[in-house]
Each structure stands twice: as C-alpha cells, then as structure tokens.
Amino acid sequence: MSTHSIVNEGFLRPEPPLTPRTKEFWTSGHDGVLRIAQCDDCGQWMHPPQPVCRSCQSRSISSTAVAGTGTVFSYTVNRYQWSPTIEPPYVIAEVALDDADVVLMTALIDCEIHAVSIGMPVDVCFAISGDTFIPLFRPVTP
C-alpha cells in the first residue's frame, strides 16, 4: 500500500451519495489510499462494492487497501458536457488495477488527450467533493 495525493482541479465534481454499500469506497481516499471490496473468505475482488461475495456468498467483505497503480484497459476523449462542472474535452478511462482483479471506470487527468493508449501505466489520486474522495488516475511519470 502506498499513499497518493489529493488534487485540486479547480472545480467540484458531482458528489456521489454515501450509502452503506458505497461509503467506504468513496471516502477511502481520506488517507490517500485506494480501497476495493474483497471477500475475506475466498479473496474475490468486487467493484462496485457489494455486501456479499459473488463467488462464495460469504457476507464477510472488507475494504482492502491496494497499491493504486494500474494500466489503461480502454479510454475515450469525451467532447460533450454531461456535468455542469466538468468542462470537455476530458479523458474517461477504464483502469485495470495491478493488484486487484477489477476494472474501474474513472477519469484520467494531467495527460494530453491524444497521448493516452491502452496499456499505459497510471496511478491513482483523489479529488475532494463534499465528503467524498473521488479516485482519478494520472499517467505514471518515469
């Protein structure tokens, strides 16, 4: 596990609602650590989080700290304004985490929109919105 920075993007992203099912994911970044739901009994990773394991039906699920590094599984440059606060164009990506078998749908920041490629290594950071810490990813700089 490693800690990652909180970024100030200069605007507020829509704040996800904190529910018993998702609160731990959306607040995990408070200490700079990304956490993913994992089954205590068989190790199955799950995202979005759920209260029962889809492999063994165990109800013992923990929010497990992960490294926060991954690679781009797919990406797109969105040109359309879907949120009043997020100005296009911006890069949306699916990121496969290095140490957890999940793919997160997220946004890439601090990168040229034409410099993204599938397989590109990325690293998590967090944007604060209200009580939430929204995981975003940035290209890993050598």
Binding site: P16, W26, S74, T76, N78, Y80, Q81, P88, I92
Partner: peptide, 26 residues
C-alpha cells in the same frame, strides 16, 4: 443508483460505447 459510478466522472451513454469501440479497434 448507477449514476454514482458515472456522474462524478462526466460519463454519458456515448462514452460507454466509445470505451468498447476503442478496445475493440485496438
């Protein structure tokens, strides 16, 4: 409830298709 996984990132319907299309083309 699904919106919480897309709205913070500004993900609309076309981007879902675009992610699949990009991956498929590659």
């Amino acid at each position: 409830e699904l919106d919480q996984w897309t709205a913070p990132y500004g993900i609309g319907y076309p981007s879902h298709g675009a992610l699949r299309m990009q991956r498929y083309m590659t």
